[in-house]
Design a protein around this nucleic acid. Sequence first.
DNA 1: GCCAACGTTGGC
DNA 2: GCCAACGTTGGC
Length: 226
Amino acid sequence: MPPRKRTRSSKTPTDSGEAVDGADETSVKDLEKTAGSRRKAAGSVKSVNKDTADYSHWLMKSEPESRIENGIDVKFGIEDLKALPDQTGCWDGVRNYQARNFMREIKEGQLAFFYHSNCKEPGIAGLMKIVKEAYVDHTQFDKKDVHYDASSKPENPKWSMVDVQYQRMLKRYLSLSELKKHYHQHCTNGGPLKNLALFTRARLSVQPLTKEEFDFILTLEDKDCG
DNA sequence: GCCAACGTTGGC
DNA sequence: GCCAACGTTGGC
């Protein structure tokens, strides 16, 4: 599976979806309500819960290069978001409980980095803004969709998505390797990136950042290079 | 294309 | 509720 995502323009007819999601709303707090009742789907539920209070910024991964999965191209880079009507799309296809739970914490108006993963040079390409908070990801019910989930029932949907709007490209591309240098340095000498989820929880496709982490990363675009 | 790290499944 | 087997993510 790609990191996540395969966005369509967000002309989704889904306000029926929102009603359904309302019922689900409780699980924003007690994160694993839906999933966790069966098994403990994803590791540290409590750390997710405890930490999120501080998070106000996000990093969301998507693959900018073509890759065929179940006969469908999962490519969705920042240029693809920019090309949609209103430069807005829904961030569908997230199929990991931790990532989903973080998505449910995201508030309208918050900013997220658009991260390019599984490509020649992974890294942060640009900025987007959340324009709609979590609601039902309709692709979970679509048999034709790469991320169809036969185990999810419309009466109790498992997966959510948010809508995002393109804001701007970063002044320069911030590669994973450059970010990693700072991360290592901050681990050694102290610094704002020492707990960056990109490295401490590498596989999360929707990850939280503190304002300090976010601001530090943004200062990098004005520096000359890694 | 490889594979380490980690998430998920399901038998017991 | 443990844990082995399996599947996925995503850097390299």
